[in-house]
Design a protein around this nucleic acid. Structure first.
Length: 405
DNA sequence: GACACGTGGTT
DNA sequence: TAACCAAGTGT
């Protein structure tokens, strides 16, 4: 309530502790907070789930997943008891699948070590797999009312602008400073609301490229704005271009069924199902690559019949152009030589397995081009008009006659 | 510190 | 189109 600002010395940097900023922010938040599903509950489990889903993922994307998840796994015990396949199916399409595997593992750990109640301190939460510094602070403050700060991408941007901090907020010196500021500004009570207010401001007003300063409750206290630098802060280093690889995958048919395999439990897309295939080696044709992969991974010989489509997909750290072929089993018995499991399934049963986004566009193509059985809206004819599937940009399909030079 | 780890929206 | 960004964590 002191009208004048004070300064605290922390790590050699002066941090203004004027409580006018927290107060203005909380007042703004009370009026402008969005009505989000996880803000309608006090259930620590539900809040934890929302925080994990929100890691590197936007609110609008998370909402439908969160709603469905809470119906499928309403309690921590329900999640701990669920098979991983079901958990991954519920996560399908959200990305960063280690989040789902860790959430389930952590639920089992809470059952074993904490009698089924989520720990109520940031320090204890931090020991759960998938709970880092941010998530521990978020759950501790929002679900348990603990006086713990959070710094996510939003908070970093807001603080860098308010304080006109140059440099990369992801590198330790500046990151530590941001955590100190976030802690110093924490009000005595309502830390959870304050943290959410900071993030809400970053997500709805203090936008990365085009900040809506006239709508900002802190515009008169923003050092970056005072200098007209709000659009240039914070500064992130240039991201290096993603490597590009080419791959071939096959829809292998036999006796009315299609062959799919489950990826190993860790690493990229761990535990998800996919159409078999792999990376094209230098000087190898896509067709030869696919025959080789089917031999090496599954121990089968197959005929590559025709190209189905070509699609491009961007993962977090590389891009891929995927050549998709229709194939037929020639001989051999499929075995999981380089994967966790393989299975011949009816096309209509593909919907029961968790696939990566790039594979889902292939499924849409398969089921959409047959009448009935489609999971989504009808899809254009393959090879003529590649389907416009929002999950995955389509590259021009090659004609059945041959490839372009 | 650097890199692996998905996907979709925005500009 | 391509880069950037998102309520980050684990190794």
């Amino acid at each position: 309530m002191t009208p004048c600002a004070t300064l605290s010395q922390e790590g050699g940097a002066k941090i203004p502790t004027d409580d006018a900023i927290p107060r203005a922010l909380l007042a703004w938040y009370r009026r402008r907070r969005r009505d989000l599903p996880w803000r309608r509950t006090g259930d620590p489990y539900a809040i934890w789930v929302s925080e994990v889903m929100l890691q590197q993922t936007q609110v609008a994307t998370v909402i439908p997943y969160y709603e469905r998840w809470m119906r499928l796994f309403p309690t921590l015990s329900a999640l701990a008891a669920a098979p991983e396949s079901r958990v991954l199916k519920a996560w399908e399409g959200l990305g960063y699948y280690a989040r789902a595997r860790n959430l389930r593992r952590a639920a089992a750990q809470v059952l074993r070590e904490h009698g089924g109640r989520l720990p109520d301190t940031a320090e204890a939460l931090r020991r759960l797999p998938g709970v880092g510094r941010y998530t521990a602070g978020a759950v501790a403050s929002i679900a348990f009312g603990r006086r713990e700060p959070v710094v996510d991408g939003n908070v970093a941007r807001v603080l860098c602008r308010l304080q006109r901090l140059r440099g990369n907020p992801k590198t330790p010196p500046l990151a530590e400073r941001l955590w100190r500021i976030a802690r110093a500004w924490l009000p005595p009570r309502r830390a959870g609301d304050f943290n959410q207010a900071l993030m809400e401001l970053g997500a709805t007003v203090c936008l990365p490229r085009n900040p809506l300063c006239p709508a900002c409750p802190l515009r008169r206290r923003c050092a970056a704005r005072a200098r007209g630098e709000e659009r240039r802060l914070p500064r992130a280093p240039r991201r290096k271009a993603l490597p590009h690889v080419e791959g071939a995958i096959g829809v292998v048919r036999h006796a009315g069924r299609i062959l799919i395999d489950r990826r190993k439990p860790e690493g990229l897309l761990g535990g998800l199902w996919e159409f078999p295939g792999g990376k094209i080696e230098p000087s190898e044709t896509p067709e030869a690559c696919l025959r080789r992969e089917l031999r090496e991974e599954l121990g089968i010989e197959a005929d590559v019949l025709r190209p189905l489509t070509v699609l491009r997909h961007a993962y977090s750290h590389f891009r891929v152009t995927l050549h998709v072929f229709e194939c037929r089993l020639r001989r051999g018995h499929a075995q999981p030589l380089a994967c966790a499991e393989c299975r011949w399934v009816r096309p209509a049963d593909l919907r029961n397995y968790a696939f990566p986004a790039a594979n889902r566009s292939v499924i849409a193509l398969l089921l959409g081009s047959k009448q009935g059985g489609g999971i989504t809206a009808p899809v254009a004819t393959p090879l003529v008009h590649p389907p416009r599937i929002p999950m995955c940009r389509q590259a021009p399909a090659r004609s059945a006659a041959g490839r372009r030079t």
